[in-house]
Design a protein around this nucleic acid. Structure first.
Length: 434
RNA sequence: ACUCCCAUCGUCUAUCGGCUAGGACAUAAGGUUUUCAUCCUUAAAAGCGGGGUUCGAUUCCCCGUGGGAGUGCCA
């Protein structure tokens, strides 16, 4: 029988990285096994499951390229079926009506009173629980609506799910679910419980710990492939020393026996590093598209003041860690109205003789015959020798032209900026000097 | 309180009884570079504690400790 797995999120506005990680594992498993990956939207909480929330969910799936193989199932459409099953269970004596909660009559599923319940988790191994440690549980609320446990199991049956892969926090539920399958008379799927993603305190990773929702990572300028790659490595490893892997490599290598059993902390620094690697290797056209979008959003022009966009992007792309740092990192290439970094100004401009130096260099730049990298290097080197090192010229000029202390190679930068701008900026910065 | 789960460098992880415990991120030092990023070299950095099983335990078992999860109308 071929593998059928599902991702079953409740659409509550944003998709948590823990949930999407579960989705990724399901997706990889399905693709590795040549099975089906399905989406079931558990939208039974009508108040929180707004159309916008569902839209957000689908966008996340799309962004991460988690394609599913059959039309999405909406759980709220199956309510009748859930209630029929509850009726059946009640008729057969597996469930009973009770009003102990006081809110009216609900339907309660009867758990075994004694004995031991067990199942083999494909990652965690054999799980056992004494029957007396599990209580009966509500499957239909007093308002007539089916509860998660019931709906989840019935839908898994109807969707012919073969493997349920979900968060660790569901292990206890699994004992209940297994009893439901048994009572309904249906073969239960295999179960796989994935460790949680936690914060520095070991608690479930939440919005308080930083970006916690897929949309936030997208907003902050992470690539879907980088996030995907990073998340897979939380709780799974290929066994060799590979870390940056393509989708195909991940699909090829992904097996359940390499999943971990312990919780993993979310390390944004490593994600950022990985994202930088992905950006550096991104096709120029893709980078350009995102670059322009970010510039537009920041209200900056789409075309550089000088040179063409590609020349400007050459030094920018390999230095970009996340898209969100694009506007501030290259604003000086697109407008003369750029900010000066205070530290850089204090360190490189507010020094004895810098004013004169900048004016002199502006003069030299203006009069040199060819404004090329080679010629610039000669001139700057020459001037530097009289000042005890090229740095004495390079640093002030860099800050004068870009406002910041880091960036592309200076000669490259000057040529990009063009003679006219360089001279103007040197003279303007000279006023800030000393 | 009870039940269950988990436990290797700061972090993510490798190790399926033989380990001088490997890799990556982060950190530190050095080299390359005009700066930053990159790149190269190097350093520091781990088996929670106690018992057992074994010729030999990070690896298997038990106890403790720590963390997490769950315990009838959330999912």
């Amino acid at each position: 029988m071929s593998v059928r797995v599902r991702f079953a999120p409740s659409p509550t506005g944003n998709v948590h990285i823990g949930n999407i990680r579960a989705a990724i594992f399901n997706w990889l498993f399905a693709r590795h096994e040549g099975g089906k990956f399905l989406l079931r939207v558990e939208d039974t909480d009508l108040e929180r499951s707004t159309p916008e929330a569902i839209e957000t969910l689908l966008e996340c799936m799309d962004w991460l390229k988690l394609d599913y193989d059959e039309p999405a199932v909406y759980q709220s459409k199956n309510t009748q079926r859930h209630l029929e099953v509850a009726d059946e269970l009640e008729k057969k004596g597996f469930a009973y009506r009770d009003s102990r909660g006081g809110e009216g009559e609900c339907v309660v599923f009867r758990m075994p009173a004694e004995g031991e319940l067990e199942f083999d988790d494909l990652v965690k191994g054999r799980m056992r629980k004494k029957a007396k440690d599990l209580q009966d549980f509500v499957i239909v609320r007093s308002d007539g609506s089916p509860v998660f446990h019931l709906a989840n199991v019935v839908d898994d049956i109807d969707m012919r799910i073969t493997h349920v892969m979900r968060g660790d926090d569901h292990v206890e539920n699994t004992f209940k679910h297994l009893e439901l399958f048994r009572a309904i008379g249906s073969k239960a799927p295999e179960y796989v419980h994935l460790p949680m993603i936690v914060n520095n305190q070991g608690k479930p990773y939440s919005k308080r710990d930083g970006a916690a929702f897929v949309g936030e990572f997208r907003e902050q300028g992470f690539l879907p492939d980088a996030l995907f790659n990073f998340l897979v490595l939380l709780g799974w490893a290929p066994g060799d020393d590979r870390e940056i892997m393509t989708r195909d490599e991940l699909i090829e290598a992904f097996t359940l026996d390499r999943c971990k059993t312990s919780a993993a902390r979310f390390d944004i620094k490593k994600l950022t590093w990985m994202n930088g690697e992905y950006i550096a290797n991104q096709p120029r056209e893709e980078f350009k598209k995102e670059f322009l979008a970010r510039m537009a959003r920041a209200g900056l022009p789409a075309t550089p003041l000088f040179a063409d966009l590609d020349s400007v992007l050459d030094p920018v792309q390999p230095r970009t860690k996340t898209y969100s740092d694009i506007p501030s990192n290259c604003i000086y290439l697109f407008t003369d109205d750029f900010p000066f970094d205070e530290k850089a100004v204090n360190r490189r401009l507010k020094k004895e003789g810098v004013r004169e130096l900048l004016l002199e260099m502006a003069e030299k730049f203006e009069t040199m015959p060819d404004f090329t990298e080679e010629a610039l290097e000669l001139i700057i080197k020459e001037k530097g020798e009289s000042l005890g090192g090229m740095g004495a010229v390079v640093h002030p000029v860099r800050v004068a032209v870009s406002g910041v202390a880091e960036g592309p190679g200076l000669f490259e930068l000057l040529v990009l900026a063009g003679r006219e701008r360089v001279c103007a900026r040197c003279r303007k910065a000279a006023e800030m000097a000393d």
